[in-house]
């Protein structure tokens, strides 16, 4: 039978791993991005550092500002 303190250690370690994985996923998901879908339905990620990506990003920020101005 597993010793009690080992059970507690394993449980705490599992929760800690789950928590760190959640934060890691959230950090990745939290990165800004621009995606564009073509007529065929294929998505493509647009580089934010490029000219088109930064322009799309600026236009989206303006739309968010419009939405927030009325909130």
């Amino acid at each position: 039978m597993q010793k009690p303190y080992r059970f507690v250690l394993a449980r705490v370690a599992t929760y800690a791993e789950e928590g760190s994985a959640y934060l890691r996923r959230r950090r990745i998901r939290g990165l800004p991005f621009v995606r564009v879908w073509t007529r065929g339905g294929a998505p493509s990620a647009i580089d934010l550092d490029g000219e088109p990506g930064s322009r799309v990003f600026a236009a989206a920020a303006a739309l968010i500002a419009i939405a927030e101005s009325d909130a």
Binding site: P32, F33, R35, V36, W37, A60, A61, I64
Partner: peptide
């Protein structure tokens, strides 16, 4: 483009 999805901090 047919769809656009942009994610920002806000």
């Amino acid at each position: 483009p047919q769809q656009v999805h942009v994610a920002t901090d806000d």
